[in-house]
Design a protein around this nucleic acid. Structure first.
Lengths: 218, 218
DNA sequence: ATAAGTAATTAGGTGACCCTAATTATTAGA
DNA sequence: TCTAATAATTAGGGTCACCTAATTACTTAT
């Protein structure tokens, strides 16, 4: 049976949580990510287990099976392709595409993603700088660090963000930190981890550690 | 409250049924159109009535309220715009776009349809020859008759189809009856209503009355 | 006018997904 | 180590959107 929209969202969440922190994907973390009550999450984990899309064990958390992984990576692929479409073809901004892509990623069709991929010229990254998985499920390698881990004195290119909340994305835009924008790390303040930046030959700005941890650079 | 996906599908069905036959939209007709049990249809008609999206009365059938009409026409608009996109931009065939558009029409966004419309160059008709409602809800007028009502001896242009089942659409393609294709009505058989056609200077073919009732020409 | 068919409706379920409240495990701090 | 906090789970519901079976209301043909 093809997974329901809701099941797809759980699989995607488990995929993201599993890769972002090597740690176990707990009921709590899923509950937080999807804003769903822990009791309901347990419900769903049972169903996903029955459908052999995940393995679940209290102590090790949830892990995607092969089948579950294929489903999840496919959704991620579609999400990111649609994001590229919305930005490149329809002219949306960086911070406007997420919600629509969240819906578009669930469109079912044998080859829509592949056609879209071709139409867009086989893009490697989405507007947030995240790599777009290939049709075969392979995710292009990408070596990225956050601004928090960047070396003072060096220059980097912005390749993406971690946080995707409107608040954050709007602040990012105000700082002119688009994809591909050059950023020089002037200094790191030891006291609180703040980072002093120079954005594309402009003035110096200081951002918090929390902020810097959410900007991906390469 | 914004209507659920299911509610949207009911509204769309009521819209189509209401316009195709000036007759009343009965429980039975909705049940047939959506392949849903009459009892369930009643359920839903109650809910749609509560939400003031339709008026329902056994003797007059279901009718869309202003609010319901706006919702329905918007879905139709999105459906047809997406069909154009799938054919024009992604290279799908006439008979492949329906199922995907059926899903895409439910994507929620303040201005996605308008951006798509602009991107596609404000098309007037979708690949089936059906008119695309404008953003303000106005449907471009179009004078079309079915092949069954066409006059023997005259030539017409195919502008669309009524049926959208794969079986039908594939047969249409086999007969080379694309949008804009010229068709000469050679003769009508009185006995069973069959129609003898000549498709774009090709050979003569005979089609059933049932078939001819589903081909729109102008 | 009445019987037979068809349409509409009611009653009583079901499964998917969600919730709250209560309970049991687990983990961490004094 | 024992207690307090946190996480996981169970029990019991709720809503949406569907179903079957039974009943009631129309229509139509004789």
């Amino acid at each position: 049976m093809t997974p329901s929209l809701t099941e797809e969202n759980y699989l995607k969440a488990i995929y993201h949580l599993g890769k972002m922190s090597g740690e176990k994907v707990s009921v709590k973390s899923i509950s937080n990510a999807l804003n769903i009550n822990p009791a309901s999450v347990i419900d769903m984990l049972k169903r996903l287990t029955d459908k052999k899309l995940i393995h679940y064990d209290k102590s090790t958390g949830a892990r995607l099976t092969d089948k579950g992984f294929k489903t999840a990576i496919n959704i991620v692929r579609k999400h990111r392709l649609w994001e590229v479409f919305l930005q490149e073809k329809l002219g949306y901004n960086w911070d406007e595409v997420h919600d629509m892509a969240e819906q578009l990623e669930h469109i079912k069709s044998a080859d829509l993603a592949d056609r879209l991929d071709k139409y867009l010229g086989y893009p490697e990254y989405d507007p947030h700088g995240d790599p777009i998985p290939k049709a075969n499920g392979q995710e292009p390698a990408h070596r990225r660090i956050t601004l928090a881990d960047a070396e003072p004195g060096k220059s980097y290119s912005v390749v993406g963000v971690k946080d995707t909340s409107p608040d954050f994305l709007q602040y990012v835009q105000r700082l002119q930190l688009g994809i591909g924008v050059k950023v020089k790390v002037v200094e790191k303040i030891g006291f609180d981890g703040s980072v002093v930046l120079q954005v594309s030959k402009g003035e110096k700005t200081t951002v918090s550690q929390k902020f810097s941890e959410n900007i991906m650079v390469a």
